[in-house]
Design a protein around this nucleic acid. Sequence first.
DNA 1: TCTTGAAGCTCTAGTGACTAGAGCAATTAC
DNA 2: GTAATTGCTCTAGTCACTAGAGCTTCAAGA
Lengths: 138, 138
Amino acid sequence: MLSIGDLSRRTGVKVPTIRYYEQMGLVAAPERSEGNQRRYGRQELERLAFIRHARDLGFAVEDIRALIDLSGHPEQPCGHADKIAEEQLISVREKIAQLRRLETELERIASCCDGKTVGDCYVIRALSDHALCADEHG
Amino acid sequence: MLSIGDLSRRTGVKVPTIRYYEQMGLVAAPERSEGNQRRYGRQELERLAFIRHARDLGFAVEDIRALIDLSGHPEQPCGHADKIAEEQLISVREKIAQLRRLETELERIASCCDGKTVGDCYVIRALSDHALCADEHG
DNA sequence: TCTTGAAGCTCTAGTGACTAGAGCAATTAC
DNA sequence: GTAATTGCTCTAGTCACTAGAGCTTCAAGA
């Protein structure tokens, strides 16, 4: 049996986060030692690794909850799981597109500044005046 | 003089957000009407537009506070403003790189799933087993 | 001038996904 | 046996807002 610290080290999920997931119902409350400390087995390790992996991929906790529910019903059609992953992909692509626009704008702002004082700093001027932006953003 | 609603429409910053910025000290408390309603002038309009623009570019509120402080001292060297913008650019690029890795992984996960039930759904399996990932992520 | 409906006011609490800290109890290594 | 580490619960804080209750003020039309 693993202590919460062991589980943390094995999954890379921090100890308070594991307790938080338990509180949120993402992981079941585990057995306890005589002294009331959490003791985990292989199943909990696997579930937490699943959660960690999904969080790394940017899935929201609610999505993860749905995916866990689905994984408990292996006979059901998997269209729902596909849909969640698909939507996550779309959302990631949107974020990338948005960040690329910001990158372009920030590059332009930072590279144009050749002023010596704040008074003629392009960074400050660009922020004050949206019209200086080449691009639409935000 | 503009009401808070006018200011909101002109800057695209929502009314409660304007009040929140005032509370946070990002914008100064404006004049009030006889009936205690906020009344804004051109200066406040410009400052809020500045804040809006910087938030759109992903600057944290603390960064914006620093940029505003700087813009009140036009005689100072602008190296600090440049540095804030530079750091923001670096952070945006890191986020893009991370999201690209996620995109690749999600594409692979979503496209590989040709199972009909959750039991052999690649989405679920990939999340359960990090070893199925081609790439390191997170 | 009166009325009505939109807009404004303050205050508290909620969001998501944790993170930090206090003050204690249990476990583990030597 | 003892000291260091780890664990426990509980509350509160983070960031940048957002929502709602319950009230007041304002602007436009009759």
